[in-house]
């Protein structure tokens, strides 16, 4: 038994080492820094107790990051679930070339966030063909400078990026549903609505649960698109946790303070995902899906 353990540890050691060097050590270091006023450069820094944390919770950027994350979640999660479900349904219904179409939808996931953001920036600019066309109908939208539209634009880009990836998971979920169940239901005369709510959704629930949790997790890590498109504005309307941490650490050189914000962000993220996960499990159990 001991021999088996030793070999196991040996094989696991490269990853463990990687995790220690790149996750555990930085995490402990970050926790330590969050109590100091270190600015990344100075050899001298002082212990500040909980001052960084107190300052952070009072800061409008941090307060905005907290609420903006949930606003993003409210926009992004339904967007990506509906779009990936639609794609998965279409692909599931295809007689041939399912793999090929799935790859096609998966490609945006591999696209650079910088590139897609710049394309969208050009597309939504005041003098773009799209906006000139809209102005012909008297529609004038300041896409990236209006809080709601800026938030929706960023959510839409990320939804576009993740749709193919989640559709892949959901397609696998659809494919795993035994056709016999539908045939039996058809013999029993179930309506399309009953078929969806009583058969498809319960049997798809494990895949849907995975996608929901993954998409909620994504809402806490948005950075590139916001950095490229809005810089966190207008007036903090798209200021995410990552954006705030980046600004404090690398623009304002407040590594200690940024570490405190990062710790707060981690706690909020962990607690939120845990609560939402529990609620989803309860929802599944209440309906007898798990």
């Amino acid at each position: 038994m001991k021999k088996t353990n030793g070999t196991g540890w040996l094989f696991a050691s490269p990853y463990l080492l990687y995790a220690i060097i790149f996750f555990a050590v930085p995490l402990i270091w970050s926790m330590y820094l969050s109590f100091t006023d270190w600015n990344l450069i100075s050899p001298v820094y002082y212990f500040k107790g909980f001052d960084n944390f107190i300052e952070a919770v009072k800061h409008p950027g941090v307060q905005a990051a907290f609420f903006v994350t949930f606003k993003f979640m409210a926009a992004f999660v339904p967007m990506v679930i509906v779009s990936s479900l639609a794609v998965a349904l279409v692909i599931h219904g295809l007689p041939k070339f399912k793999g090929l179409f799935l790859i096609g939808f998966f490609l945006p996931y591999l696209a650079s966030g910088v590139v897609s953001s710049l394309i969208v920036k050009g597309l939504l600019s005041h003098n773009s063909a799209f906006n000139v066309f809209l102005r012909n109908f008297g529609i004038e939208i300041d896409w990236l400078s209006t809080p709601l539209s800026a938030l929706l634009v960023v959510a839409a880009i990320i939804a576009w990026k993740f749709t193919g990836y989640y559709a892949l998971i959901l397609t696998a979920g659809f494919e795993s549903i035994n056709k016999d169940v539908y045939e039996a239901a058809a013999i029993d005369g179930v309506t399309p609505s009953q078929r969806f709510w009583k058969i498809t959704l319960p049997l798809l629930y494990p895949a849907l649960f995975t996608v929901l949790i993954l998409s909620i997790g994504v809402s806490f890590g948005i950075f590139t698109e916001v950095y490229q498109l809005t810089g966190g504005g207008p007036n903090y309307a798209t200021n995410t946790w990552q954006m705030e941490i980046f600004k404090q650490a690398f623009t304002n050189l407040s590594a200690g303070y940024a570490s405190a914000v990062a710790i707060i962000a981690s706690v909020v993220t962990f607690a939120s995902i845990l609560i939402i996960r529990k609620l989803l499990e309860m929802w599944g159990k209440r309906n007898g899906w798990v």
Partner: peptide
């Protein structure tokens, strides 16, 4: 003043 996102506004004469 126009503060909306615009592409090369000076070069395009906007």
């Amino acid at each position: 003043i126009l503060t909306k996102q615009s592409t090369d506004p000076f070069e395009n004469g906007l």
